[in-house]
Amino acid sequence: MKELIKTIVEPLVDDANAVEVTVREEDHKIVYHLHVHEDDVGKVIGKNGRIAKSIRTVVYAAGMKTGKKVYLDIM
């Protein structure tokens, strides 16, 4: 899942080397934390949050196989 998130986000940002995904897994949920360079946050979120919503939709759909609720935080 981490590679999927990186594959989606890296073409959107200027500093692809700064893209980092960390995972925190709990009993009933998995939280992915996406860290990008501070200048690239707006590019990942997009106008009115449209790009972030699209990324989350793909991640949630891919996470359905786990049987746990999947969350994506963009930082």
Rank of each mutant, 00 (worst) to 15 (best):
M1K: 03
K2A: 00
K2W: 01
E3W: 05
E3H: 08
E3Y: 10
L4R: 13
I5N: 04
I5F: 02
I5H: 02
K6W: 03
K6Y: 04
K6M: 13
K6H: 07
T7C: 01
T7L: 02
T7M: 01
V9F: 01
V9H: 01
V9N: 01
E10T: 14
P11Q: 02
V13L: 00
D14T: 11
D14M: 08
D14E: 14
D15C: 06
A16K: 14
V19Q: 08
V19S: 06
V19L: 07
V19D: 07
V19W: 07
E20D: 13
E20T: 14
V21H: 08
T22Q: 03
T22A: 05
V23R: 13
V23C: 09
E25F: 09
E25K: 12
E26C: 02
D27F: 10
H28R: 14
H28K: 15
H28C: 09
K29W: 10
K29Q: 15
K29P: 08
K29L: 13
I30A: 11
V31A: 11
Y32V: 08
H33Q: 15
L34R: 11
H35L: 12
H35F: 14
H37I: 05
H37E: 13
V41P: 00
V41Q: 05
G42Y: 05
K43S: 01
V44P: 06
I45Q: 04
I45M: 00
G46S: 06
K47Q: 15
N48T: 10
G49H: 06
R50W: 08
R50H: 11
K53E: 14
K53L: 09
S54C: 08
I55T: 02
I55V: 12
I55W: 05
R56V: 05
R56E: 04
T57R: 08
T57V: 06
T57E: 09
V58G: 00
A61T: 12
A61I: 11
A61E: 11
G63Q: 09
M64Y: 06
M64A: 10
K65S: 12
K65G: 04
T66E: 12
T66D: 09
G67T: 07
G67R: 03
K68I: 03
K69R: 15
V70K: 03
Y71V: 10
Y71A: 09
Y71G: 03
D73H: 15
D73C: 09
I74T: 02
I74A: 02
M75H: 15
